[in-house]
């Protein structure tokens, strides 16, 4: 029991510092892509920059607009961080490092990632000013539209593994990773998770050039820091879920273990940053059409094909 608590602490602080260093990675990689220098003053390669940023935000005054609903304004950043931390504990990172293995693991993770959408929606309606309201209107329709392709591609993985438990899904990929059997599911899941985490090219809810900051315009100080940590933590969780569902989790060609898991998660996080600084932003109608007209029928048909292949193999 004590051992489990220590493991939990390590995972939670790993995700929190990981989300801080995602900000660093984003800034360095974007600077590299755009031929700039990026943060390099604080510590070697600017590695202490995230810590300094957090300390700076701790010393800032908290500004709540007069129109705000005080309690919900306080609650919204908390929801996203709680959902990210809880989801991080469910993911099997190593065969000897499993904290809990509920039988409905993947459903819980999907539920928690929908819960973080609530934080985006509530933050806009709690601050009750124009930019955040517009941002959270866009966010609610977007998250709702991309929820279905995600759920359908998760179902196509469940068809292959016949279990909702994350450990069972990982162990079913010991010989062949599901990305080889189910490549369309992988691509749909990856694209839809860009939209779920509000990242470019689908970052309409917080489009800087249109809505200044989108839903977190009216948040300052530590609440803003929680939004930031929650958003980057969500990227890490999405990468970890993609690794678990499609890339074989902790299984690797030579020896399976924690290192394989970390390498795969790092590569996926890098892809998230890379995509953001490579593709321009979509228009809102293009965004909705892309989900409803392309991703949903493709993932439905993919689910049918996977089920047929699986049953005829027997």
């Amino acid at each position: 029991m004590i051992f489990n608590i220590i493991k939990g602490f390590i995972l939670v602080f790993g995700v929190l510092t990981g989300s801080a260093y995602m900000v660093w990675l984003e800034r360095r990689v974007s600077a590299w892509i755009q031929d700039r220098i990026g943060p390099n003053r604080v510590g070697p390669f600017g590695l202490l920059q995230p810590l300094v940023d957090v300390v700076k935000l701790l010393f800032k005054e908290e500004i709540v607009p007069i129109t705000a609903e005080k309690f919900i304004h306080f609650l919204a950043p908390g929801i996203i961080i709680v959902s990210v931390i809880t989801a991080s504990v469910l993911i099997p990172v190593d065969p000897n490092f499993i904290i809990t293995n509920p039988g409905i693991g993947i459903l819980l993770i999907m539920g928690l990632s929908s819960l973080s959408a609530y934080s985006v929606v509530l933050s806009g309606f709690a601050s009750l000013t124009k930019y955040p309201v517009l941002g959270s209107l866009r966010a609610s329709a977007q998250v709702v539209s991309y929820e279905i392709p995600i759920a359908l591609s998760v179902l196509s993985v469940v068809v292959l593994s016949n279990s909702l438990s994350l450990v069972d899904i990982v162990n079913a990929q010991k010989e062949t990773w599901f990305i080889l059997i189910n490549p369309i599911g992988f691509i749909v899941f990856l694209i839809a998770s860009f939209a779920e985490t509000n990242r470019a090219p689908f970052d309409l809810p917080e489009a800087e050039s249109e809505l200044t900051g989108g839903y977190h315009t009216e948040f300052s100080s530590m609440r803003f820091a929680w939004f930031f940590a929650g958003e980057y933590g969500h990227i890490i969780i999405s990468s970890a879920v993609i690794t678990t569902l499609f890339l074989g989790g902790y299984h690797g060609p030579i020896a399976s273990g924690l290192w394989w898991f970390l390498i795969k998660v790092f590569i996926l996080c890098y892809i998230f940053v890379w995509v953001r600084w490579t593709f321009p932003r979509l228009r809102y109608d293009q965004l909705m059409k892309f989900s409803w007209k392309l991703l949903i029928p493709v993932s439905l048909i993919n689910l049918l094909i996977i089920a047929l292949v699986k049953i005829l193999q027997l």
Partner: peptide, 13 residues
């Protein structure tokens, strides 16, 4: 266990 984790993650913010 999950409930304990949720309580713990509430304490951080």
């Amino acid at each position: 266990k999950l409930l304990l984790i949720v309580i713990f993650s509430l304490l951080i913010p």
